[in-house]
Amino acid sequence: MYIELKDVCKEIKNTAVLTDISLRMEGGKVYGFRGKNGCGKTMIMRVISGLIRPTSGEVIIDNRTMWKDMTFPESIGILLENPSFLDGYTGFDNLKILASIKGGTDDIQIKDAMKKTGLNPDDNRKYKKYSLGMKQKLGIAAAFMENPDIVILDEPLNALDKEGVDNVRAIINELKHGGKITIIACHDAEEMELLADTIFEMENGKIVGK
């Protein structure tokens, strides 16, 4: 399993948001993107996940080119910057709806994913009653519950307490040992050093250090 970005550029409204990004990521490793707000961390994640089409360059995942051979990576879980769920359903029901689209993930796996983040799968509260931390945990559970090959976590530690942060660390460690490619963006430099094997420093849409 690998992801390769070749000279990826992205312009939005004539402004370059990514410039000549070339990198390679391998399975079994954790990659971090670090930089100031607006440096392009989230944009790279969106490009890899297929939500944004690069203006030029290629994103190759296991010999298959995005936007040519596939629309989205076949096996990906993503925690979006704005994890959004259905207000009128419980956390478990929300995840069950998502899992039902692809199929192949049973209730036990969903409950297991929730427990790993520190959520109680039997909690009958609707999502709208969730605290910010609980919403974040549900977003993380949604990202890895289907055991995807690529897991993208954009600011996974936001709104989490110490126990939540420890849980995320354990999840990332498990993903790494499971041979997955884990990509994270995190504004906490210390935490990033702890979590990632390789850190890409970003500035103005460019990778300026590794």
């Binding site: 629309t71 989205f72 076949e74 998502l98 689209i101």
Partner: peptide
């Protein structure tokens, strides 16, 4: 497409 639907979209694998 600005919320929950993105997760559905990515799982559907097809725009």
């Amino acid at each position: 497409v600005a919320g929950y639907g993105v997760q559905i979209l990515m799982r559907s694998g097809d725009r």
